[in-house]
Amino acid sequence: MILDPLILVTAGVCLLAGVGLYGLLASRNLIKLIVAMQILTKAAVLALVAAGAASGRINLSQSLAITVIVVDTVVAAVGLALGVQVRKRFGSLDAANLASLRR
């Protein structure tokens, strides 16, 4: 049986997105949340490249993918910096502490 590469890539996107979403839903540790978000973003990058390959506009999709990677790195950096602050102020990395920001 020969698998269509597009189907393979789509399966990969779904797998990565599933792992990322599960991590975001189930975890309360800030570091784990950032890792899960990274995985979710990688699913998006993969989907962008696959979409470009499928539609024949690979230039556009590659430049978008690069943009997403750059933005994603910045998000991760800021998220980790916030994590450091949370650890300093609350003494733990539990995201549930942040509920006190509500008020």
Binding site: L21, L24, L25, A26, R28, L33, A95, A99
Partner: peptide, 14 residues
Amino acid sequence: TQTGQLNWNIAGIL
């Protein structure tokens, strides 16, 4: 409805 819990927010988005 705003719990301030990240996981609930993610569930809402989903």
